[in-house]
């Protein structure tokens, strides 16, 4: 049996049915070295306060549900271990820059609406009948977008982006990384349409290259790179108009 230790988790609580602002509540817990912050929160919910509200699903850093601020850093609670925050206390808050719905649950509506706008699916360059077989790609074709396809929509990059916090009209890192992922796919033919969103002032130009989005990404997607590659593309396309280009 692993040895049990103690740590205190301070949770930023928020009750939308009350009339006050969020407040911190401390929960001392016993934990073992193999326990994640998510398991710590589940222990609190099961044994101390059933009203504690948070999102989670897969427990293995693939569903992207349990994003939260842990000691001020956007993190997946399932991927963060309590042992790394000793002696504590560790502070857990809802993802920064999003409106809090309740406790650790944020309103992701803005992110979801932006995601839909970029059409995050392949729109084939040429529509083939099923009988014509697969749309083939070479390993080089895959290399062009693969890294950006690892995005799990966890929104940690939005919580890491102060520009999004200051003005949430900006498309943001994650959605732009997915825009880049589909535009870079050799099977896709809708890059021109998606780039219209990138060209807007609230498109790629909302980014000031803070770069923290790429630091916190649990999947090494490097959204800052996607955004800045598209700044170049957007600028080239702007000047190409004067040269009779697109």
């Amino acid at each position: 049996m692993p040895e049990a230790r103690n740590i205190t988790i301070e949770v930023l609580r928020y009750d939308p049915d009350g009339d006050g602002p969020p407040y911190l509540q401390a929960f001392p817990i016993e934990f073992t070295d193999d326990m994640s912050v998510l398991q710590g929160l589940q222990q609190i919910k099961d044994f101390q306060d059933g009203s504690l509200t948070f999102r989670w699903s897969c427990r293995m850093a693939i569903c992207g549900s349990c994003g939260m601020m842990i000691d001020g850093t956007p993190s997946l609670a399932c991927r963060s271990f309590l042992r790394d925050y000793l002696p504590g206390p560790l502070r857990v808050e809802a993802l920064a820059h999003f409106p809090i719905e309740r406790d650790l649950v944020v309103d992701a509506g803005d992110f979801m609406a932006k995601l839909a706008r970029i059409k995050p699916y392949i729109i084939p360059k040429e529509v083939k009948p099923l009988s014509a077989g697969e749309y083939l790609q070479t390993p080089e074709d895959l290399e062009r977008y693969e890294q950006f396809s690892h995005c799990i929509n966890c929104m940690l990059c939005y919580a890491a982006c102060p520009q999004y916090g200051l003005d949430n009209k900006w498309l943001g890192p994650g959605v732009t990384a997915l825009l880049h992922r589909y535009n870079s796919d050799s099977r896709d033919g809708a890059a021109g349409e998606r780039m219209q969103l990138a060209h807007e002032p609230e498109g790629v130009w909302g980014c000031t290259a803070v770069g923290y989005c790429s630091e916190v990404c649990p999947k090494a997607v490097d959204p800052a790179n996607a955004v800045n590659q598209n700044k170049t593309k957007s600028a080239v396309s702007f000047f190409a108009r004067f040269l009779g280009g697109e």
Binding site: Y14, P16, D17, P21, P22, G72, T73, A96, H97, P99, I100, E101, D107, P162, G165, L166, V210, G211, Y212, E215
Partner: peptide, 22 residues
């Protein structure tokens, strides 16, 4: 009719060493 809470951004650049460096 949901009452969500939006946290202020005052002093955001002092919240994280990464932002101070930026």
């Amino acid at each position: 009719g949901r009452r969500t809470y939006t946290r202020p951004m005052d002093g955001w650049w002092l919240r994280n060493p990464f932002f101070v460096k930026y």
